[in-house]
Design a protein around this nucleic acid. Structure first.
Lengths: 110, 110
DNA sequence: TATATCTGTAAGTTTACACTTACGTAAGGA
DNA sequence: TCCTTACGTAAGTGTAAACTTACAGATATA
C-alpha cells in the first residue's frame, strides 16, 4: 500500500498506468511513448509490478503489461478510508462493539 | 495536483493529515506525535501547505494547522478520474461530440 | 547454429528528499 | 527591557531514486 502510493506519485508511472489500463502492451511499445530511455521504463515497470499495480505476462519474446485491477482497487479503498477519518473512527468503534457483542453486520453509515 | 500526490506519498505526512483532519493543532503538538525532530515536521507542514492539503492560521505565538478540505477534495476527484480511464475517454468522446453539435447535457454513464 | 529481436539487469551519476543541528524571528510575560 | 515560548529557515549530510550506457539472457528466425 505504501509502495502503491509511492509508485503513483511519479508522473511517468501514472502515464504508464493509463497506457496499459485498457489494453495489454509490450514493454517496448510502452517505452516508445516516453522521452526517456527504454531501460528507464523497464525500471518503472518493475516498480509498478512490485507495488501490485500491474501484471506481467510473457508471450514469446515479448512481455505484456496491464493494469492490475485488484491492486488499483485496494489503493482506492485505502484512500477512501483516508478521505474521512471520522468514518474510519466510526468503523473502528463498530468493530470494537463487534468484539464485545460477538455478533454483527458490517454496514457502516455516515 | 502533482504536488498533492507527492505529498501524500510520505507516511509521516499522511499521519500529519490524519492528526489535523478533525481539529486544528499547533505545530509543536503535531511534532510531539513523531519520533523525528520538530524542524523536520515543520518542513513536512510546509510541503503539505504548498500542496494545498493543509491550512495555516496564526494565533499569537502559535501556528495552527488543519486539513484543507478543498485540497483533499480536488485530489480525490483527480484520483477518481484516474481509476477508470474508460470513463475519462467516454467523457472526452462526449465532449468532442459537444464541439460538433454545439449542444449538450453532460451526464456520462458507464 | 548463427543472428536478430525484445527485454531485464548492472554499474555509475546526478538530483531530490528526509533528516539533523544551529540560528533567526515574532509574540507574550516578568 | 529581558527572557521565554513557539515557531520557521539555513546549512549540511546521508540515502533513495530516476536516469544513463553497457551488457546479459531468452525467444524466434534464417
Amino acid at each position: 500500500m505504501e509502495a502503491a502510493l509511492k509508485a503513483m506519485s511519479d508522473p511517468t508511472r501514472r502515464k504508464i498506468l493509463q497506457l496499459v489500463q485498457n489494453e495489454e502492451m509490450p514493454a517496448g511499445a510502452i517505452a516508445s511513448n516516453f522521452p526517456v530511455s527504454r531501460p528507464a521504463i523497464s525500471q518503472h515497470l518493475a516498480v509498478l509490478k512490485s507495488a501490485g499495480l500491474i501484471d506481467e505476462r510473457r508471450s514469446g519474446v515479448k512481455r505484456l503489461y496491464r493494469t492490475r485491477v485488484a491492486g488499483m482497487a485496494e489503493l482506492k479503498v485505502f484512500l477512501e478510508m483516508f478521505w474521512d477519518v471520522r468514518l474510519e473512527r466510526l468503523k473502528a468503534a463498530v468493530e470494537a462493539d463487534i468484539k464485545k457483542e460477538e455478533s454483527c453486520d458490517d454496514d457502516v453509515q455516515n
